Amino acid sequence: MSFEMTKGLFKYDFTDQHAILGIPLDAEFNDIRKRYMKIARRLHSDTCSFEDQADKDWANQFLSKVVNPAYNKFSKESDRKEYNLLLAAIGKRVLKEQGKMQVESAAAKELTTAKDLEEAYKTAVAKLALKQYESVEETQDAIAQISELNMVYLLRKERLGGAVGTGSPAKIATPTTTPKKPAVTPAAVTPATATPAQPPLKVLPRDSLADRACVRAQGFMDSKNYAKATLELKEALKREPKHSKSHGLLAMCYFQQNQATMAKLEVQKALASNPEEPTALEVKKKLEQPAASGAKDKKSEDKLGAFFGSLFGGKKK
């Protein structure tokens, strides 16, 4: 059975656990748990009300392979922190690549211009969640639509009060007629985000896998989890052996784990592909510094050794 999902935040090689469970991105753990229990009762083989046996089999598989792992991401604090780091990185990426973003569902399109972002977002998610697990056909479509809502919500939150930000439309409407001119800005921005959306997407398949791995790896590195970052980058380099950024970040991971030899090798590979790769150059400088300081320390130790030797008895001639 295929449970592949490719819309909304799933486009960014990210598993949108919130969309799977049908909860907003700021949901509290108690609400997450209640929602999970409701879905589990709906899909579990002992309590599933689907009439067709094939649908019951699908429900049982979807529960064990998709819903349970989603809930597990929130049940442990360490996993929750890791997931939130990735989500924050995805939010920044959505903002950076907003010109390539495509919104298909009507609910997500409405959210792009909703005046009260928080209210509109939570209402739309709750509405979709009501029928999310009513049938096999509706489940994955509802997950896709909720993930699109999450994508638009993250974009608007990342804009931090920009042209389409949460507070902008309300502030413009309240004061006087003068601020009505800025209201032209959202109209100008909307086509800009929609028009160039399709052409750039053709470029994505060539380098998206390694780039996405770098986003995830950077999140792990920020939390000093260099072991997981190393695994992400190695997987990326299996697909794109000459990806300079992956080599640069891997060099930094090795350096932080005191593996100087491996760090040097990755620096060489990164600079061979891109002589100006910033992370590789940074690691190169760091690797050169200890060598110089180590030589100075050795000289200092030799001098101190000679000094103490003369004090506490060298060989008398």
Rank of each mutant, 00 (worst) to 15 (best):
M1T: 11
S2M: 09
S2A: 03
E4Y: 12
T6W: 10
T6V: 13
L9M: 08
D13K: 11
Q17M: 08
G22I: 09
G22Q: 04
A27C: 04
N30I: 10
K34T: 12
H44N: 14
T47F: 08
D57C: 00
A59R: 02
N60K: 11
S64F: 12
S64A: 07
K65M: 10
V66K: 08
V67C: 03
V67F: 04
P69Q: 04
A70I: 11
Y71D: 05
K73F: 13
D79K: 15
D79T: 11
E82P: 11
E82W: 14
L86V: 00
A88G: 00
I90M: 08
G91Y: 02
L95W: 15
Q98H: 13
M101V: 12
S105K: 07
A106S: 11
D116T: 11
A126N: 06
L130K: 13
K131S: 01
Y133I: 01
V136L: 03
E137M: 04
E137D: 08
E138M: 07
T139A: 13
T139L: 13
A142Y: 09
E148N: 07
V152W: 06
L155H: 05
E158G: 07
E158D: 09
A163W: 10
G165R: 02
T176L: 05
T178W: 06
V184T: 14
A188Q: 14
V189Q: 02
P191Y: 05
P191M: 05
P191H: 03
A194D: 08
P196Q: 06
A210K: 15
C214V: 15
V215C: 06
G219C: 05
A227E: 15
A229T: 04
L231C: 06
E232G: 00
S244D: 13
G248V: 04
G248R: 01
C253P: 07
Q259M: 14
E266W: 04
E266H: 12
K269F: 02
L271T: 09
N274P: 02
A280R: 04
K296T: 10
K298H: 08
A306H: 12
F312P: 01
